[in-house]
């Protein structure tokens, strides 16, 4: 097990390293580093001073090591617009994004798995066909468009829920979160549902496929032959088998939820790091863009690693293979 974790950690490091190269060369080779790293308002003298200060006159590999050194100590430069360290800005917007992503993940699992279970158990019922049609739509509809429709329906037309902003936040343990206030909850409803939509469809499909497969297996028939109630057969024998892979895949989607929240945050004016990124791109605030990219890469790698490790702990079959290996 320890060997596995260490190996997985090494892999993660390699990926982060590779991505840092890609981002760095993205900025320095594809893009124009002077334009990217130095405020466009600077005059000629300032520009040259900045180039020297940033080390842009040095050879590229030296620059890369400087970049890595900065990144490792959390120094991605200062935002042109806010004048604050880029990393600090992003970190201060991160809780709002994480809160949104986790709520969406929760919704996806809480809505998608029961619907998928139903569709898998009664594949021919009209309700199941409806669920599956809905999930195809959920896959094809662009998130931003569904978000617009949600605002139109629930906020403008029915006036049930607020359309923009995060609402009041309260403190829970050490976190500042809107999940603990009524106002905050009503604000997070629409964006979280919007962000969750694609993942609900995914959860439905995964669960349904898993249930259909498990229902045909001998172990389910054997469980029925033991005289167990359908409830126990489904909730223990079927669900236990498919929950592990489904939850694993859903866990892996957390990274993409954080990435996707860029769209949702823009539509619902949610003050998270996705919104910060879009504003930064539009205002050419490059240090923030670079810092965001590195952080999102880090997130992805971390999440993949944690989910992998959890999976190997949870599933007795994988666990054994690891022992054998």
């Amino acid at each position: 097990m320890t060997v596995f974790i260490i190996r997985r950690l090494m892999q993660a490091l390699v990926v982060v390293f590779l991505m840092s190269i890609i981002v760095f060369f993205g900025v320095n080779v594809i893009g124009d580093p002077v334009a990217m790293l130095i405020s466009p308002d600077a005059d000629q003298a300032e520009m040259e001073a900045a180039i020297r200060r940033l080390g842009l006159d040095r050879p590229i590999h030296e620059q890369y090591f400087a970049f890595i050194k900065g990144a490792a100590t959390g120094d991605f430069g200062r935002s042109f617009i806010f004048g604050e360290p880029a990393l600090k800005l992003i970190l201060s917007h991160m809780p709002a994004t994480l809160e949104l992503a986790f709520t969406a993940l929760f919704l996806a699992v809480a809505i998608g798995i029961p619907l998928g279970l139903y569709a898998g158990l009664y594949p021919d019922s009209p309700i199941s066909k409806g669920i599956m049609a809905g999930s195809i739509l959920g896959f094809s509809l662009p998130t931003f468009w569904v978000g617009l429709m949600m605002i139109m329906l629930f906020a403008v037309h029915l006036q049930w829920l607020p359309a923009t902003g995060r609402g009041d936040t309260g403190t829970f343990l050490w976190f500042e979160t809107s999940l603990v206030t009524r106002d905050g909850l009503s604000h997070i409803m629409l964006p979280a549902l919007n962000l969750a939509l694609l993942k609900i469809s995914l959860a439905i499909r995964l669960t349904r496929a898993g249930v259909r497969e498990a229902m045909g297996q001998d172990y389910v028939k054997f469980a029925r032959a033991k005289g167990l109630s359908p409830r126990r057969v489904i909730l223990v024998h079927v669900m236990k088998n498919i929950l592990i892979p489904v939850v694993t895949v859903m866990g892996l989607e957390l990274g993409s939820l954080i990435g996707f929240s860029v769209v949702t945050e823009t539509i619902f004016a949610w003050p998270g790091m996705g919104k910060l990124l879009i504003d930064a791109i539009l205002q050419l605030d490059r240090p923030i863009v670079v810092a965001y990219l590195m952080i999102i890469v880090l997130f992805f790698v971390l999440i993949n690693m944690i989910v992998d490790i959890l999976y190997s702990i949870l599933d007795p079959r994988v666990r054994l293979q690891e022992q054998g290996a």
């Binding site: 054997f222 032959a225 024998h237």
Partner: peptide, 24 residues
């Protein structure tokens, strides 16, 4: 039927690799 199955009438299947639930 549930009372009867596994209680008064029981069944053994062909492939022992498949009849036991792998995660229980």
């Amino acid at each position: 039927w549930q009372d009867l199955r596994g209680n008064r009438i029981a069944m053994i299947f062909q492939d022992p690799m498949m009849t036991l639930n792998p995660v229980l």
